[in-house]
């Protein structure tokens, strides 16, 4: 499988990365190179093989359903680029 320019732009949009026409062109070549490299996986017979979901055969650890952390609003917003009274500020999303 290979990707065309329209697909590159669509994927960039999905990934929320702005790309120029020039970058999209370059990425198309690189992505096709990588996709060509991974193409060889299709020759592996995987009939009856389960996909790996965990490298270690263990049940996921679960913690008790209790509040164990919190009241750290200031810590949480401390690194945000724009905040107001412990809220994150973003451009307007509703009219």
């Amino acid at each position: 499988m290979s990707v065309d320019l329209a697909t590159v732009k669509r994927v960039a949009r999905l990934a929320r990365i702005a790309v120029s026409e020039e970058e999209a062109q370059r990425m198309m070549g690189e992505l096709n190179g990588i996709l060509g490299f991974v193409e060889q996986l299709s020759e592996v017979d995987v009939a009856g093989v389960e996909p790996m979901t965990s490298v270690t055969p263990m049940a996921m650890k679960k913690r008790e359903d209790v509040v164990s952390d919190g009241n750290k609003a200031e810590d949480i917003v401390a690194n945000a680029p724009v905040t107001d009274r412990n809220f994150f500020l973003v451009p307007k999303v509703v009219e």
Partner: peptide, 13 residues
């Protein structure tokens, strides 16, 4: 399926 699922199965192998 063609990529991710296939890769995870190969990983099992």
């Amino acid at each position: 399926d063609a990529y991710y699922l296939q890769a995870q199965k190969v990983r099992t192998l």
